[in-house]
């Protein structure tokens, strides 16, 4: 028996951000465990802080959820690579800043300092890996995109 779904409908009907033109994109389950999502959030909070402090909590909530969905669609190897990068930041970066603790034990300013030390070390590739994924998701939040002037307007607009 065949269930023939029509071409994607023209109008977006759903309020669910993971449903696009009737096509559901939500991962069956988050691809990162809750502790790793929390660690990712701590790193993001420091990475995207400004002189005024960390980004709003709601934006980080959004990031945490979307990151879970992102990795929910990927295979084991990518998840492992991301977790390895995150683990390097979380456990090694503080040591490079002469702090004998994990990143989670530091306030956001000290976290920024530790991350900067890691970026100048031979392990900078680990930071690049995690920073790339975190930034790609974070700056898609409409408010974050606006803050950096990324309008995505096209030539004809």
């Amino acid at each position: 028996m065949s269930v023939v779904r029509a071409e994607a409908p023209a109008e977006e009907a759903s309020a669910d951000p993971y449903v696009v033109l009737g096509w559901s994109s939500r991962a069956a389950r988050p691809g990162l465990s809750a502790p790793w999502r929390r660690r990712a959030r701590l790193v993001a909070e420091a990475l995207f802080s400004t002189d005024d402090g960390p980004p709003p909590a709601a934006r980080l909530d959004w990031l945490e959820e979307d990151l879970g969905d992102f990795f929910g669609h990927l295979g084991r190897r990518s998840r492992l690579v991301f977790v390895a990068c995150l683990a390097t930041i979380y456990f090694v970066a503080p040591l490079l800043a002469w702090r004998l603790c994990t990143l989670g034990a530091l306030d956001w300013r000290a976290r920024v300092h530790a991350i900067e030390r890691l970026e100048r070390s031979a392990l900078s590739i680990a930071l690049l890996g995690a920073k790339a994924i975190l930034s790609i998701v974070y700056f898609e939040h409409p408010d974050a995109a606006r803050e950096i002037g990324w309008t995505q307007q096209c030539k004809l607009s």
């Binding site: 990475l47 400004t50 920024v112 920073k131 975190l134 790609i136 700056f139 002037g149």
Partner: peptide, 24 residues
Amino acid sequence: PGSVIAATMPGAGAALMRRAREVP
């Protein structure tokens, strides 16, 4: 994309965000 440009800019925290504002 702007998000990927920002990702490859060096720094963290205020330094990164200052650079990210250069995206346009």
